Simulated assay, not measured.
Amino acid sequence: MSPLPMSVSTLSGPSTLTLRQLASGEATLEEAGHLSVSVAPGQWEELVGALESHGLGQAVSVEVHGEAPGDWPTDAQLARLVALGCVELRVPWVMELGEQRAEQSAHFVRLLRDCTSHRLRVRWRGAALPPIAPWTLYHLEPPESGGTPELDEAARRWRQAHAYGRCYWRAGPGFMLVKDRREGRSATQFLLDDAATRSVFEALSVPKRVESLDTEPEARKALADLQEEALVLELGPWRVALPFRMRCWPVPFIAV
């Protein structure tokens, strides 16, 4: 299996720059082989623009700051950040994933899923809370710790059970194939070859409230089937697809 990029935290280099400092050109290749940048939620386009403008060619660690989680980078923004050298995303808050913060949790799960797809390391603390079945998230970037003594054991189990490629999808002509080898269930493949199921699955690539989804009988059945197989996470009124898109095949690819 191809190794993850080296964590920036293992390297020596300059202190963390603000986005304004980066945009003004204060970072130079002569300073170090990597860069650490601090951004607020929602500043992702500005970060992409600053990195593109300077073309630094350095490994980039992004530290998020603020009083509370906000907008996370989209899948397209993550792809651009990775292409520009981003190797890790550092999250300062303890993320308790559950129905009490359903919207926030659904969006963070989406972030973990897309970062897993792009092989972008997420350094975060937290765990899944009931009624989420913990094994449904074990294929995603695991927490470094629980952040609190009450969550540390759940976080440890997540790290122990995690392996890349445990639940992913790939597309073919007119179909989508999901392969599920998550800890706690038998290895299974799902062929999403009908239009209603593919439409619901694709719609939930970003979190949505259930009332905003297609209400046609075929779509409602497709959603129920995806939820039953734990391919869609249900968090209060929010729904989000769980398998990540396989973009980075391990070597050998038969490992997944």
Results as ranks from 00 to 15, higher is better:
residue 94 V to A: 04
residue 39 V to N: 05
residue 246 M to W: 02
residue 244 F to M: 08
residue 22 L to E: 02
residue 92 P to H: 09
residue 255 A to T: 15
residue 130 P to Y: 07
residue 166 R to H: 11
residue 60 V to L: 05
residue 228 E to P: 00
residue 3 P to K: 08
residue 41 P to N: 10
residue 42 G to F: 03
residue 161 A to K: 12
residue 38 S to N: 12
residue 246 M to V: 00
residue 65 H to G: 00
residue 5 P to Q: 09
residue 131 P to V: 04
residue 29 L to K: 15
residue 145 S to F: 07
residue 173 P to G: 00
residue 140 L to F: 14
residue 23 A to K: 14
residue 117 S to N: 07
residue 4 L to K: 04
residue 117 S to Y: 07
residue 242 L to R: 07
residue 189 Q to I: 00
residue 219 A to L: 09
residue 82 V to G: 10
residue 53 S to G: 05
residue 76 A to P: 00
residue 169 W to K: 02
residue 249 W to H: 14
residue 233 L to F: 10
residue 11 L to A: 12
residue 106 A to F: 08
residue 181 R to W: 13
residue 21 Q to T: 01
residue 145 S to E: 10
residue 18 T to N: 06
residue 117 S to I: 02
residue 206 V to I: 15
residue 47 L to E: 04
residue 163 A to N: 08
residue 177 L to K: 13
residue 80 R to T: 09
residue 80 R to E: 15
residue 68 A to T: 13
residue 69 P to H: 05
residue 185 R to N: 00
residue 219 A to K: 10
residue 96 E to K: 13
residue 38 S to G: 12
residue 186 S to I: 08
residue 206 V to Y: 03
residue 88 E to M: 03
residue 176 M to F: 10
residue 226 L to F: 10
residue 238 W to P: 12
residue 148 T to E: 14
residue 209 R to C: 07
residue 35 L to C: 04
residue 166 R to Y: 01
residue 142 P to W: 05
residue 224 A to E: 14
residue 6 M to F: 06
residue 214 D to I: 02
residue 169 W to T: 03
residue 45 E to L: 12
residue 238 W to C: 12
residue 143 P to M: 06
residue 204 L to D: 14
residue 41 P to L: 05
residue 243 P to D: 03
residue 164 Y to E: 05
residue 219 A to Q: 06
residue 15 S to D: 15
residue 152 D to R: 12
residue 206 V to N: 03
residue 4 L to G: 03
residue 15 S to Y: 00
residue 22 L to C: 01
residue 92 P to Y: 13
residue 23 A to C: 04
residue 119 R to M: 12
residue 216 E to Y: 01
residue 72 W to C: 10
residue 249 W to S: 11
residue 233 L to V: 10
residue 195 A to K: 11
residue 64 V to S: 00
residue 104 Q to P: 02
residue 24 S to H: 11
residue 140 L to P: 09
residue 143 P to T: 03
residue 122 V to G: 06
residue 170 R to H: 05
residue 191 L to A: 02
residue 155 A to V: 08
residue 58 Q to Y: 00
residue 35 L to D: 04
residue 232 V to P: 10
residue 50 A to G: 02
residue 220 R to S: 14
residue 144 E to V: 14
residue 201 F to E: 02
residue 25 G to Y: 04
residue 173 P to I: 05
residue 24 S to K: 12
residue 48 V to F: 00
residue 255 A to S: 15
residue 226 L to K: 07
residue 88 E to I: 07
residue 126 G to R: 04
residue 104 Q to Y: 00
residue 172 G to M: 04
residue 122 V to W: 03
residue 93 W to P: 10
residue 174 G to P: 07
residue 183 E to F: 14
residue 22 L to P: 06
residue 149 P to L: 06
residue 112 L to D: 07
residue 240 V to N: 04
residue 44 W to M: 11
residue 219 A to G: 08
residue 166 R to I: 01
residue 174 G to W: 05
residue 23 A to T: 13
residue 36 S to C: 06
residue 139 H to T: 01
residue 160 Q to N: 08
residue 172 G to H: 08
residue 38 S to T: 11
residue 138 Y to H: 15
residue 19 L to V: 03
residue 172 G to Y: 08
residue 48 V to M: 02
residue 130 P to H: 03
residue 103 E to S: 13
residue 58 Q to G: 00
residue 176 M to V: 15
residue 96 E to G: 12
residue 117 S to F: 08
residue 156 R to F: 14
residue 26 E to D: 13
residue 105 S to E: 09
